[in-house]
């Protein structure tokens, strides 16, 4: 059984004018444990909504999202929160670090919702991403690349089975982006986590053997593209 099994997934939103727009409509998508997949997706392809559905942040209108044997589409909110805290590491395009917390505290806080805070592991992870001397720095005191690395450390802190990365290099310059990507891949390999990365950067996508086109997977995005 695959780590992640998605079937007949559909998600729509109601626009302010009352019209309903389908953003995600994916018949099937699977991801095995330790597998690393890059999804290419331009703006409007529904990539963030897709990742939020996998993370249990959004609930699909139809279909199933089975992660590690649990269907997030039917699971109660508390169960989805728990799975997100324990089994999923999420690297956001805008990093989403808590500005009032230090690097170390950002990582520790993520751990506190999962298996529990482990200061030693948090410090080790931050040292691993090259921030051993920035433990007590606040995000605003770090460069964009350093903030990205804190986000990577936080995503891996709970030893997740699946790491979701939404345009992880989108806010970085070329060199920093490639360094960050290498770090994410390496960290996932070391921890045995599967990686699902979405990006519209061809150079980033080229780093992956397994590449899929979200526009092709997502019928809703495909239909919009055809219509436009």
């Amino acid at each position: 059984m695959a780590l992640l099994e998605i079937r007949n997934l559909k998600k729509s939103f109601r626009a302010p004018d009352g019209s309903i727009t389908t953003v995600v409509e994916i018949p099937a998508f699977d991801l095995e444990a330790r597998q690393r997949v890059a999804l290419s997706g331009a703006s409007g392809s529904g990539k963030t909504t897709f990742l939020n559905l996998i993370a249990g942040i959004l609930v699909p209108d139809l279909g199933s999202v089975v992660l590690d044997g649990v269907d997030l589409a039917t699971a109660k909110e508390a169960a989805r929160d728990r799975i997100r805290a324990v089994s999923i590491g999420y690297i956001f395009q805008t990093f989403n670090l808590l500005q009032g917390y230090t690097c170390l505290e950002n990582v520790l806080l993520g751990m506190s919702f999962g298996p529990g805070s482990d200061r030693g592991r948090a410090e080790e992870l931050l040292r691993r991403v090259g921030l051993g001397d920035r433990l007590r720095h606040y995000p605003r005191q770090l460069s964009t690349g350093q903030q990205q690395r804190v986000a990577v450390a936080r995503a891996l802190a709970n030893r997740p089975k699946l790491v979701l990365a939404d345009e992880p290099t989108g806010n970085l310059d070329h060199r920093a982006g490639l360094e960050s990507l290498a770090l994410i891949r390496e960290a996932c390999t070391e921890s045995g986590a599967a990686l699902l990365l979405v990006s519209h950067d061809r150079e980033v996508l080229a780093q992956f053997d397994d590449r899929r086109d979200l526009l092709a997977l997502n019928r809703a995005a495909h239909a919009q593209e055809v219509a436009s």
């Binding site: 993370a55 942040i57 909110e77 508390a78 929160d81 728990r82 997100r84 805290a85 324990v86 999420y90 956001f92 989403n96 670090l97 808590l98 500005q99 009032g100 806080l109 993520g110 919702f113 999962g114 936080r154």
Partner: peptide, 16 residues
């Protein structure tokens, strides 16, 4: 709101 959303995305329950 953003901090709350981040905390929830990290797995914090509504009750927390």
């Amino acid at each position: 709101r953003r901090d709350i959303a981040i905390l929830r995305a990290l797995g914090a329950r509504r009750a927390v």
